[in-house]
Design a protein around this nucleic acid. Structure first.
Lengths: 94, 94
DNA sequence: TATAAAGATTTAAATTATTTAATACACGAG
DNA sequence: CTCGTGTATTAAATAATTTAAATCTTTATA
């Protein structure tokens, strides 16, 4: 299977999106840029947990990060993900 | 958070797609209907493992199943998933 | 009818991966 | 220096994956 690497890379993207906290983060980033610092309170988890979630999203190249002073501002690197979130709506409605 | 259920349901869809074998299955189903019986050999895994993968995809309502005789024929229930696979291409190319 | 086969699922157990918070550390701003 | 923000590492709990064996279902056939 010559396409093995491509399939694994694709699975990795989905895996990065497979946790409720990370889905929530992406839904917020669809609306616009956000600081990592906001999410510990929003998600009600430890800052180290938030850091780990963002690291996973960044490693999968789903988001971009931009260090501004002591903060890190994040944005969507994969804007078409928005369309897929719409796509899932049909199923979620049932 | 009133949208908690929706976010968890969405994460579940991504989780169902987060395994290389299941990505491969979906890529095949994008091309057309297939029998479950083909995949043990294609994926080189036990038939019970294949059954489990299909159960996960069905439970997430990504595929439909249709029993025909002793076989089960599967098809995509979420055709728009194809667009998302295209969307990931940009990232995979890098 | 009886029964064997092919295809699919379930169960249980072992293995492997993920999630989380705690701790410690790094860095820039004031 | 101190505070706010973020990262790295570790350890413990939880969850996912895999396979073999047992069990179903349906069809074909003696």
């Amino acid at each position: 299977m010559q396409t093995k690497d491509r399939i694994e890379a694709r699975a990795k993207i989905f895996k990065a999106l497979s946790h409720p906290s990370r889905v929530y983060i992406i839904e917020e980033l669809i609306k616009g840029e956000r600081c990592i610092c906001e999410f510990a309170e929003l998600l009600n988890v430890d800052k180290s947990t938030v850091s780990k979630h963002f690291a996973i999203l960044k490693e999968a190249r789903i988001i971009n990060t931009d260090k501004q002073g002591t903060s890190v501002i994040c944005s969507l690197r994969m804007p078409c993900i928005k369309n897929f979130f719409c796509c899932t709506e049909e199923i979620l409605k049932e």
